Computed example of a mutant assay.
Amino acid sequence: MTAPDLAAALIDAGRQLVDAGLSPGSSGNVSVRDGDRILMTGTGTRLGALERTDLAELALDGTPLGGARPSKEVALHLALYAKNPEHAAVVHVHSPSAVAAACLAPWSDESAVPPLTPYALMRVGQAPLLPFAAPGDPAMGERIAASPHPFRAALLANHGAVVSGEDLARAVDSTIELEEWCRIALLTQGAARTLIAPEHVRALADRWGMPWTGPLA
């Protein structure tokens, strides 16, 4: 994909996230990786109104290569690329249900929310709750690197969510599905809810290539 194509795809991804109600105000950031460089939304930008001048170009070690000043969450993105080297896009949002779920005790060490829907298992897999770090703190990247669990999505305590994907479309889809998963978890919180049966949890996660190493029920 050429540089203009990458920029256009990133701008479109930002609009999709806003249209889905996942990026209020100037919150959230998105990046896409192409070989040894990363294109990332700039600091203070609104994902629904991105222009090419709002994008920053970085090396894989975070060194600025040109464009706008990158989001302060560079460490968060770099850490998830390092964890999932086959992935080429990262989305970070402060979406309402993900933030709310990130303020609650996690369901397990491996996943903050339990296996409630097949789509969560098919599009996200387990999503651990990572300990709190202030926005922009490089410790957020360290939390990802230190986690022993495989994941493509995580909740950031009292903060929001971060998701990676093989490409921008899959990263955006997984982010939208994670928000829906958290919303359903909140709606059923405290109720006598029924989880997906263990044999179906493993079968769905394996079939769709999503990580699930934690409890099955």
Rank of each mutant, 00 (worst) to 15 (best):
residue 3 A to S: 11
residue 4 P to C: 09
residue 4 P to D: 09
residue 6 L to N: 03
residue 6 L to T: 08
residue 6 L to A: 08
residue 8 A to S: 04
residue 8 A to W: 00
residue 11 I to M: 12
residue 11 I to R: 12
residue 15 R to A: 13
residue 17 L to I: 14
residue 17 L to G: 05
residue 18 V to D: 01
residue 19 D to Q: 15
residue 21 G to R: 06
residue 23 S to R: 04
residue 26 S to E: 06
residue 27 S to E: 13
residue 28 G to Q: 12
residue 28 G to N: 10
residue 29 N to H: 14
residue 33 R to F: 06
residue 35 G to P: 01
residue 40 M to L: 15
residue 42 G to Q: 02
residue 45 T to L: 08
residue 51 E to L: 02
residue 51 E to N: 05
residue 52 R to M: 02
residue 53 T to A: 13
residue 54 D to C: 02
residue 57 E to N: 07
residue 57 E to Q: 08
residue 59 A to P: 13
residue 59 A to S: 15
residue 59 A to K: 09
residue 59 A to R: 11
residue 61 D to L: 03
residue 64 P to E: 03
residue 68 A to L: 10
residue 69 R to M: 08
residue 70 P to K: 04
residue 72 K to M: 07
residue 74 V to K: 09
residue 76 L to V: 02
residue 78 L to K: 14
residue 79 A to W: 01
residue 80 L to H: 11
residue 82 A to C: 15
residue 84 N to M: 10
residue 85 P to C: 08
residue 85 P to I: 15
residue 87 H to W: 05
residue 87 H to K: 05
residue 91 V to C: 08
residue 92 H to V: 08
residue 93 V to L: 03
residue 93 V to G: 02
residue 94 H to G: 06
residue 95 S to Y: 07
residue 96 P to M: 05
residue 99 V to G: 01
residue 100 A to W: 00
residue 100 A to F: 00
residue 101 A to S: 09
residue 102 A to R: 02
residue 104 L to S: 13
residue 105 A to H: 04
residue 106 P to W: 08
residue 107 W to A: 00
residue 107 W to F: 07
residue 109 D to W: 01
residue 111 S to C: 04
residue 114 P to W: 02
residue 115 P to Q: 04
residue 115 P to G: 03
residue 118 P to F: 09
residue 121 L to T: 00
residue 125 G to E: 02
residue 127 A to K: 05
residue 129 L to T: 01
residue 133 A to F: 10
residue 135 P to V: 12
residue 137 D to V: 11
residue 140 M to P: 06
residue 144 I to K: 00
residue 144 I to N: 00
residue 145 A to C: 15
residue 145 A to H: 14
residue 146 A to K: 11
residue 146 A to E: 13
residue 148 P to Y: 15
residue 150 P to I: 01
residue 150 P to F: 01
residue 151 F to D: 05
residue 152 R to E: 04
residue 153 A to V: 04
residue 153 A to G: 06
residue 153 A to E: 03
residue 155 L to I: 03
residue 156 L to R: 05
residue 158 N to A: 12
residue 158 N to L: 09
residue 158 N to E: 09
residue 159 H to G: 14
residue 162 V to G: 14
residue 163 V to G: 08
residue 164 S to F: 11
residue 164 S to W: 14
residue 164 S to R: 11
residue 164 S to K: 05
residue 167 D to S: 14
residue 168 L to R: 15
residue 169 A to L: 13
residue 169 A to C: 05
residue 172 V to T: 07
residue 173 D to N: 12
residue 174 S to T: 07
residue 176 I to L: 10
residue 177 E to G: 04
residue 179 E to Q: 13
residue 179 E to S: 07
residue 181 W to Q: 00
residue 181 W to V: 00
residue 182 C to A: 06
residue 185 A to T: 13
residue 185 A to M: 15
residue 185 A to H: 12
residue 186 L to F: 13
residue 188 T to N: 14
residue 188 T to K: 05
residue 188 T to L: 12
residue 189 Q to T: 10
residue 190 G to K: 08
residue 190 G to N: 10
residue 192 A to E: 05
residue 197 A to S: 07
residue 198 P to F: 08
residue 200 H to K: 10
residue 201 V to N: 08
residue 203 A to Y: 04
residue 203 A to G: 03
residue 205 A to I: 06
residue 206 D to Y: 04
residue 206 D to W: 11
residue 206 D to N: 15
residue 209 G to L: 02
residue 210 M to D: 00
residue 212 W to V: 12
residue 213 T to W: 00
residue 213 T to H: 02
residue 215 P to D: 10
